[in-house]
Nucleic acid binder design. Structure first.
Lengths: 223, 223
DNA sequence: CGGTTTATTTTGATGACTCAAAATTTATAA
DNA sequence: TTATAAATTTTGAGTCATCAAAATAAACCG
């Protein structure tokens, strides 16, 4: 039984949802899953029970859902396809990084293993996609690094943007126009609780202040 | 209302089915449609009635179905995506011509206009796909040429294979291994009713005899 | 603790697509 | 022309994925 696009989307959403959960917990609440997929809560419950039947998830009524080993592998493979496709569309097809997410969202369900491996080869076995998200290997193994956000990183320290965890096209264009794409050097000059903002020194010592919400979506690393 | 993959497949099958019909007729029988799509005859009837509701086809009970102008345009655009994708997979991705049909069968339903136009551009606005099938333009216009098959072409005349109208992978590999791909020079030496076969002189004067069934799938043109 | 809010699950229905098998129509041929 | 064969349509049912709204459980708070 190969999984339907719907099942793949559920697994992917659970995978991504789990990874944002506070340490320890690891059970994704149904409400969160439902809103990630833009479906009614009742629908999520029904589908998750079916996924549990198939051994792809563990389901605890009223508590939430988590992937089993096989569910996680499947989810990682969907993510692998998604991210390789994104990178391919940018690198080979010359599409803009803000327009590839939606396209990949469709392609991830139909692209064959054969084609994906060909893309992987053409791209030189890359480790991250255009947003800095890690690309799982062909076996579904993912190497993930702990990165600080602009809210948690040290101040006045040279850093490099390495990941942008939001696929909204307008946000991505904003990031690009201010030279904050993965790879760009950056330094946090100040954070202010009251104004809910972060001041950044970027390329050519340009200053820019962004909201905490946006800042939390930029992950940085030591250069 | 954008058409579902299912609707696209019906329109494509009707389009292709119509084109093989004996002159004049132009009404595709339900049975043929059903078997082209590998579905039960009753299912075809039901769906076709729905398509007629949407104005995509004309349906005459017990006689068959034909595309309306809008249905034909939609079908041509599906075919455009299918054929551009096939050519892209061969030319850019380096896949074999016998393995791209199935992949394109999936991709044709999800690939965006943006991406298709990009492929078209990268390929230099090609007119035919790897099997010699014509690629409809972005408006759904198709330029089609009358070609003879190996059963109808003149004997002892230099010709060029220009189209192979069968997507079966084994057949395509056979064609390739005997240098009968589109572009190859060829000459029909003899036809024999009794043995139901055709003798061909190909590249380097190599002789090969194939069945009439197979011969009817090779279209040729004056060099 | 007890009442209220919030999250989750259940219930009943729907739409798109499919099948198998029965009923019907059309075509064929003796 | 009339019986038989072949093609087509109808009928009844099933699957998958979804929703809205009612019922229930859990969490929160004064």
């Amino acid at each position: 039984m190969l999984p339907s696009s719907t099942v793949e989307n559920y697994l992917k959403a659970i995978y991504l949802g789990e990874s944002v959960l506070p340490e320890g917990q690891r059970l994704l609440p149904m409400g969160q899953l439902a809103s990630a997929l833009s479906i009614a809560p009742g629908t999520a419950t029904t589908m998750v029970k079916a996924l549990a039947e198939s051994g792809l998830v563990e389901y605890e009524p009223y508590n939430g859902v988590r992937l089993t080993a096989s569910g996680e592998k499947l989810a990682a493979l969907v993510l692998r396809r998604h991210r390789l496709v994104e990178l391919f569309l940018v690198q080979v097809m010359g599409l803009r990084w803000d327009e590839v997410h939606d396209e990949a969202e469709q392609l991830e369900h139909v692209v064959s293993d054969r084609l994906i491996e060909r893309m992987d080869e053409m791209l030189g076995y890359p480790e991250v996609d255009p947003h800095g998200d890690p690309i799982p290997g062909p076996e579904g193994t993912i190497k993930h690094r702990e990165l600080a956000t602009l809210l948690t990183c040290p101040l006045h320290t040279p850093l490099v943007v390495t990941r942008v965890t939001d696929q909204d096209a307008a946000f991505l264009r904003f990031i690009e126009s201010h030279h904050l794409k993965p790879g760009e050097p950056i330094e946090v000059e100040a954070r202010d609780e009251v104004s809910d903002s972060v001041r950044i020194k970027g390329r050519d010592d340009q200053r820019i202040t962004i909201g905490a919400r946006a800042a939390s979506k930029l992950l940085v690393d030591q250069p």
